[in-house]
Computed example of a mutant assay.
Amino acid sequence: MAIDERNLKADPAIVRTWVKGWALTRQVAAPVFENGGYRVEVGLPDQKRRHVFPAYSDLVRQHAEEISEPFVFLKVCAPPELVQPNLPPHWRIEAPGFMMSLSGTMPGGMAALPDGYTFVHQDFGRMTLVNVLDREGEVAATGRIAFPGEFAVYDRIRTHEGHRRKGLGRTLMKRLEVLSHEKGIDRAALVATPDGRALYETLGWQLHSLYTTAIIPAIAA
């Protein structure tokens, strides 16, 4: 019998490590645990702060009722139909997300990049940025990997328009995996978009939990 994805419960330890890794990949201050969730000060005009919860509870509702400033995000490892009815009306549910995990090695060997593309690495302590450059030196694909603890966190995986359907995303993921294995780490986590989930599942990643995002897009009236 197929598992109902809405019933999946996130492991709080995985969420904790993932949030730490996310902060490393974004180069922001480490998350602070408070009132059942992790507060991350992002400091961007369109994302001031995010509060990440490993599950829905009444604490999520309390946060939502206390926050009125725009561009603050609530991230909850729960289905949207559980989260949305408990939020004040000035909160908007964003596109669905999927927390995914990997244990072991992604299938397939390390494929070479197509002709004209090269990898460039930049190391930032516990985080590495990997870009795929085209012949003109422009970024064609990009991804980040952080090592906050017992598993790796993949983030900001993207192939730019004009360079898709060439296998760059798959090859980039395998390159990030090499960096992880070099550190003796073969477990990983990430949060995917619907399109990203489709790719990652072909690479052996499994859905860990649904991941709902809510935002205040403008100052509440």
Rank of each mutant, 00 (worst) to 15 (best):
R92S: 13
K48E: 11
A29R: 11
I93S: 03
Q47L: 15
V32G: 05
P54Q: 00
H90K: 10
P89E: 02
R61S: 15
P89Y: 04
E66L: 14
E65H: 10
A95N: 07
E94L: 14
P54H: 04
H90L: 08
L87Y: 02
S68V: 13
A64I: 04
E41I: 13
V32Y: 00
A55S: 13
L44D: 09
P70K: 07
P79H: 00
E41T: 11
V42P: 11
F98G: 00
L59R: 10
P31R: 07
H51Q: 09
H63S: 09
V52Q: 09
A78H: 09
F71H: 15
P79I: 07
G43Q: 08
F98T: 05
P79M: 01
E69K: 06
D46P: 03
P54Y: 03
Q47S: 12
G43C: 08
H51K: 05
P89S: 12
A64N: 06
L82C: 03
V40K: 04
P80K: 08
E94A: 07
E94I: 05
A55E: 14
L59E: 15
P54K: 02
S68F: 10
E81K: 02
L87K: 02
P80W: 04
S68W: 11
A29C: 08
L82N: 01
P88A: 02
S57V: 03
D46K: 13
P31M: 06
V72D: 00
P45L: 07
A64P: 09
V32Q: 13
H51R: 08
P54C: 06
A30S: 13
P85F: 05
A78K: 04
F98L: 02
R61A: 15
V60N: 04
R50Y: 02
R39F: 08
F73C: 00
K75Y: 04
R39D: 05
P85D: 04
A78T: 07
E41L: 12
A78E: 10
L87V: 02
E66H: 11
V60S: 02
F33Q: 11
A30W: 07
I67T: 13
E69V: 14
K75L: 15
P79L: 00
P85L: 01
P85M: 04
F33V: 12
Q84S: 12
V72C: 09
G43F: 05
P85Y: 01
G36P: 09
F71W: 15
R49C: 15
V52D: 08
R26C: 09
N35R: 14
A55L: 11
L87A: 03
E94D: 12
H51M: 15
D58W: 06
V28N: 09
A95R: 10
F33W: 12
I93C: 07
S68G: 13
E41C: 08
R61Q: 12
R50Q: 14
L74S: 01
V83T: 05
V52E: 01
R50P: 06
W91R: 01
E34K: 14
P54N: 03
H90V: 08
A95M: 07
D46E: 08
P45N: 05
P45W: 10
R49S: 14
S68L: 15
V76H: 11
P88F: 03
P79Q: 00
P88Y: 00
R61L: 04
K48P: 01
W91C: 04
V28D: 00
K48R: 15
Q62Y: 06
R26Q: 14
P54R: 01
Q84A: 14
F71T: 05
G43A: 09
D46T: 08
A64K: 07
